[in-house]
């Protein structure tokens, strides 16, 4: 597990460096998903960074597209593109758009950013896999605020109706959205019961605990005839003390001083 913890920590360092450099982006929801993306990209997913369009690959859809920094950090760490690219996040002429662009960035399986749409696209990928008798899995990550979108529930019905057991979705349940706490803005609870009622296999875990993440994925892979929703309880801003569970760090980049403090906590070094 130490190996994965190290990778998740590296992703956090890269996220902070990226955002400090671009002076723009979403740290909170990127930091909350580091363990999930580490588990997927560095253990679970059957992928080949040298061949990003390999048709038998497992897919990943970051439906909460504003979490792009954690996806870019994972893809760079995995070798889809050089790490130096991370310095160009959100800058003009960069392949690293503010939200994921599948045509511009190697390894990005779906263009996302407008909330809710990624889950529907993941459904399409999973349907195609069934149609072609392929073994690949489709993974997706949705946000808890994102679960307020109507299309999420349209897609939830479809995935169950078509028995998409090749679809494994994580809900990054950090409890916060831009305007505040989910429960104050628009309560989504009981979100586990909702997905169960929609016909999903639901597993609730600690989204920062690798053992729980791996076990949940193993369980999901064994489920037949149903999609799986892994509700991952997470902490927004996880790993950077002053960002943790703070709504203000949804979409704000750290200053140089703040980034340096984060580096101290994470054991990283800011580039000049």
């Amino acid at each position: 597990m130490d190996k994965y913890k190290d990778i998740a920590n590296k992703l956090r360092i890269d996220i902070i460096k990226m955002l400090e450099e671009s002076k723009s982006g979403h740290p909170g929801g990127s930091l909350s998903a580091c363990e999930i993306l580490t588990a997927l990209y560095f253990k679970e997913m059957n992928i080949d960074p040298a061949n990003p369009h390999w048709e038998d690959r497992d897919r990943f859809v970051l439906s909460k597209g504003h979490g792009a920094p954690v996806l870019y950090a994972a893809l760079a760490e995995k070798g889809y593109f050089p790490k130096e690219e991370l310095n160009n996040l959100r800058k003009i002429d960069s392949m690293l758009q503010g939200h994921p662009d599948m045509k511009g960035t190697p390894g990005v399986d779906m263009t996302t950013g407008s909330l809710g749409q990624g889950l529907a696209a993941a459904n399409g990928m999973a349907l195609a896999g069934k149609l072609d008798n392929k073994d690949y899995k489709v993974y997706a990550l949705i946000g808890d605020g994102e679960a307020q979108e109507g299309i999420i529930w349209e897609a939830a019905m479809l995935a169950a109706h078509y028995k998409l057991d090749n679809l494994i979705v994580f809900l990054d349940h950090n409890g916060l959205q831009i305007d505040g706490k989910n429960k104050d803005i628009m309560n989504i609870e009981p979100v586990d019961e909702k997905f169960k009622a929609f016909g999903w296999h639901v597993i609730s875990i600690d989204g920062h605990d690798f053992e729980e993440i791996f076990n949940a994925i193993d369980e999901a892979k064994k489920v037949e005839g149903k999609p799986t929703m892994i509700i991952a309880k997470t902490i927004k801003g996880k790993g950077v003390s002053y960002m943790e569970d703070q709504v203000g760090w949804h979409g704000k980049a750290p200053s140089k001083e703040e980034a340096e403090k984060a580096m101290e906590e994470l054991g990283g070094v800011l580039d000049d």
Partner: peptide
Amino acid sequence: GTAAGLAT
């Protein structure tokens, strides 16, 4: 959205 995913 589903159509988009199928196209990918």
